[in-house]
Write a protein that binds this DNA or RNA. Structure first.
Lengths: 142, 142
DNA sequence: TCTTTAATTGATAATAGTTATTCGTTGGAC
DNA sequence: GTCCAACGAATAACTATTATCAATTAAAGA
């Protein structure tokens, strides 16, 4: 049994073809797709799949921490199966999202939040907004 | 003419009582209110004000960069007239948002994004999620 | 393997946040 | 003070998401 199936089982979630397909898609792309994108991508292989199933599945996967849900100020959420600590770069022209793995040292910040303010950080996100190299080159005006 | 009115004028926005009220409220609170909160707060002084007016006003103020719009993974956006560089701490129990002014050194990150990836950063946000001191003390379970 | 049962799916209705439209009103340039 | 583009109020429309529910299916136990 693969990693996902084990994780689903550990979270008392049934292993279904839809869940496997959605997770597999998320685990094999770096496009940070929205629900709509996931749905459209899987439609050709799973023509019967409902949009509601995609919503329910990403919520379930998010709740058992198999994927991350995030929002970059757009009208809809994006999803990412990449659990490595990283930040996101949103190109405000082409609306693609890139990963940044470079290390951002904020250990001292987390320590100060806890010691000075009593704020116990359990998660964080760091997002950058700007123009990607390709859009700059193309002088894209979207 | 006060500072707020001057700011509106400088951005070619007409000075109206509604805009002054909304902007003034945002400039004098550190509560990071949502549109709903702004609307409810102003209802007693401006009983005729429409929710649509609040939406249009915050959009106008955001477009001319007088206020910041941000989203912390909640169902609605929050607004902030504070232009100083700072991060946000969202308490996942009481859902209040606190400011953190401590300096987070990421100049080298912005430099690397530009030099290595050609990504020209124009804005960024850093959000921390966790439990605030008060909720921890109260062992609040919301 | 068969049965049973509760979880899941798909279809669709409902909800919530936000935006668009319409039309009467008004700020502010002249 | 006059005029008109911008604005506000009311409300319809739109879009992302969630809830509902009957039919289906995963999976545990006989």
């Amino acid at each position: 049994m693969n990693k996902l199936a084990e994780n689903l089982k550990a979270n008392k979630l049934k292993i279904t073809p839809q869940r496997l397909a959605i997770y597999s898609y998320l685990a094999n792309t770096n496009e940070h797709p929205t629900v709509e994108t996931i749905y459209n991508h899987l439609k050709k292989d799973y023509p019967a799949m409902s949009l509601a199933t995609v919503y329910k599945t990403v919520a379930a996967l998010r709740d058992c921490r198999l994927i991350k849900e995030f929002n970059l100020g757009e009208e809809c959420n994006r999803y990412d199966a990449n659990n490595d600590m990283h930040s996101h770069l949103l190109c405000t022209k082409c609306h693609r999202v890139f990963d940044y793995y470079g290390d951002i040292d904020i250990k001292h910040v987390l320590y100060e939040l806890k010691s000075s303010f009593g704020f116990e950080t359990t998660a964080m996100d760091i997002n950058f907004y700007g123009v990607c190299e390709e859009c700059k080159r193309n002088n894209n005006d979207n």
